Each structure stands twice: as structure tokens, then as C-alpha cells.
Amino acid sequence: MASGSFAFMETCHSPWAWQPRSLSWWVTTTNLLGCVGFLLSAVVSIVLPSSMGPAFPTVSLIFTLVGAMGFLIGSLLMLPESVVPS
């Protein structure tokens, strides 16, 4: 979570900025959303054994998927930045 937040602040040059025309902004935003997804997955998976209902593992799995998709989209968006013009 800290790495995603610091990368976002470095890209925006402030704690928050709306820059949807910047590819770097999209990369760090989707990575930050991936961090949030994994954080929520970890929080939801911590359940007391007596209160564990059938929905908690499913919700944790959904947030894990959201985190993974955020990182996947962020890494795919980095591909155009890696192309060096000839």
C-alpha cells in the first residue's frame, strides 16, 4: 500500500491529482487500486472462527482478483512506455 501511494504521489507531484490524459497516471492509479484490492482481501480474510460465514472467503477471493487485475492492467499499460522511439 505504501509503495502504491508513494508511486502515485511521485507521478502526480502531489498527494492527489486528476490527470487522466497521462499514461503514467493511469499506470500508478491502477497499481494503487491493485494495492487497495489486496489490502481489502487481507482485512476480509481475518475473521474470528465463530463468526465465519460463507460469504467471507468469497469476498476475500473477489478482492484478491481485483488486486491482481489492478496489477495486471498496470503492467500492461507500462508496455507503451517501454517502447523507445527510433
Rank of each mutant, 00 (worst) to 15 (best):
26 W>H: 12
49 P>E: 15
52 M>I: 06
5 S>A: 15
31 N>S: 02
23 L>R: 12
67 G>M: 04
54 P>K: 03
65 L>R: 12
84 V>A: 10
33 L>Q: 05
13 H>S: 07
18 W>S: 07
52 M>P: 00
22 S>H: 07
34 G>Q: 06
60 S>L: 12
53 G>F: 00
45 S>A: 15
19 Q>N: 07
14 S>D: 11
54 P>W: 01
81 E>G: 06
22 S>D: 15
46 I>H: 12
76 L>P: 01
18 W>G: 03
33 L>A: 14
17 A>N: 13
9 M>S: 07
20 P>R: 10
32 L>Y: 14
80 P>A: 03
27 V>C: 08
46 I>Y: 02
23 L>F: 10
71 F>H: 02
18 W>D: 01
41 S>V: 02
14 S>G: 11
69 M>C: 08
39 L>T: 15
24 S>T: 09
79 L>K: 03
45 S>M: 03
46 I>N: 15
10 E>Q: 08
75 S>F: 09
20 P>E: 10
1 M>G: 14
10 E>G: 07
5 S>G: 10
83 V>S: 08
33 L>G: 03
53 G>I: 13
16 W>G: 09
19 Q>H: 05
74 G>V: 14
5 S>L: 15
36 V>L: 10
60 S>I: 05
56 F>R: 06
56 F>V: 10
52 M>E: 04
17 A>V: 05
69 M>Q: 02
76 L>N: 03
34 G>F: 06
2 A>F: 04
13 H>W: 02
80 P>V: 00
82 S>R: 12
76 L>D: 00
68 A>W: 06
67 G>D: 00
